[in-house]
Amino acid sequence: MQTSFWVRRAHKWLGLVIGVQALLWMISGLYMVVVPLDVIHGDHLAHVSTEPLKPDATRIGHARLAELYPGLNSVRLKNMLGKEVYEIRQGKDAALVDVATGAKLSPLDRGTIMALAEESHVGEGDIRGIEWVTKAPSEVGSRPVPLWAVHYDEAGDTTLYFSPHTGDLVARRHNLWRIFDFVWMLHIMDYEERTDVNNTLLRVASITGFAFALSGAWLLLYSFTRRKRA
């Protein structure tokens, strides 16, 4: 008798403690299941150009680039706005250079970024503004700054982030992604970085939920046993 009393009481209080979080788990999980991941990633808002490269007859070789840029780690030929450019890396630093002269093209200016954004964007809105970002907002995570942020005047409040050093589209952000980020925070209970799926708070909540389920299972078995005796 005493055992059932204390298990019932524990079950009640465990339910009060974990109930709200369990509801948040279900709501956030439902959102993550209902909204397709490619929509969250913003694949429908912008694409990366796949046009074939147009060979440049005046292209300088890697040996000349190594002379111009000591400590060169890698060289990659890429297409930027229909023209060939080299993307070079020196240690952790990246830059774009002219294929004919080897002159450095980056950091890219506002006009070039606007052209890259218009080439990539497939939404319906127009550019509302272009921002030079030196302090990374939470929605771009740990991506290195500075970045160019191109804001669009459309229903989803789309923002495309470009690297000024490589011209790459590094992030697509819109309201559905921002909602996902918020419910993901609630789901994993990491209210600061929103990345740690093994944090202490989540562990405690999981253990509490497990204890709630065990106590409920015990009470269910107890009720059947008691009814059978009666």
Rank of each mutant, 00 (worst) to 15 (best):
G29D: 06
L72K: 01
G123E: 02
E51N: 05
V133H: 07
P107E: 04
P36R: 05
H151L: 12
K54S: 13
Y69L: 09
Q2G: 14
F224S: 04
F210R: 00
K78A: 07
V39D: 11
D56A: 09
P164K: 00
N199R: 01
K54W: 01
R203C: 03
E119S: 04
H165P: 01
R89V: 07
V35R: 00
I188A: 12
D153T: 08
A63Y: 01
L96C: 07
K104S: 09
A46T: 02
V75W: 02
G29S: 03
P36A: 08
V197G: 08
L53R: 07
T50M: 13
W177D: 02
T208V: 12
D157M: 07
V150N: 08
K92F: 10
A22K: 01
F5P: 00
A10S: 14
M80Q: 15
R59Q: 14
T166K: 01
E193A: 15
W132T: 01
V97T: 06
F224N: 03
W184N: 11
T101E: 08
K228D: 12
K135Y: 11
A149G: 06
V20D: 11
S49V: 05
T50E: 13
K12S: 14
D126I: 03
W13P: 12
R89F: 03
D126P: 05
E154K: 02
R9W: 12
V122E: 08
I130L: 07
L24E: 09
R229P: 06
S106W: 02
V34A: 13
V97Q: 02
D181P: 08
T159R: 09
L23H: 07
I18H: 04
T208L: 10
R194E: 11
R143P: 00
E87N: 11
V99L: 07
P137M: 09
I179D: 01
R110F: 10
L169M: 09
S142Y: 06
V39A: 10
Y31C: 03
V75N: 04
L116I: 08
R110S: 12
R64T: 14
R173E: 13
T158C: 03
T200W: 11
R227C: 10
E84V: 05
L176N: 04
G71N: 09
L96R: 04
Y152K: 01
A66E: 15
L24I: 13
S142D: 15
A57D: 11
S120Y: 02
K78Q: 15
E154Q: 09
P107I: 02
H174F: 13
L220E: 05
A205W: 11
S206N: 10
E192V: 15
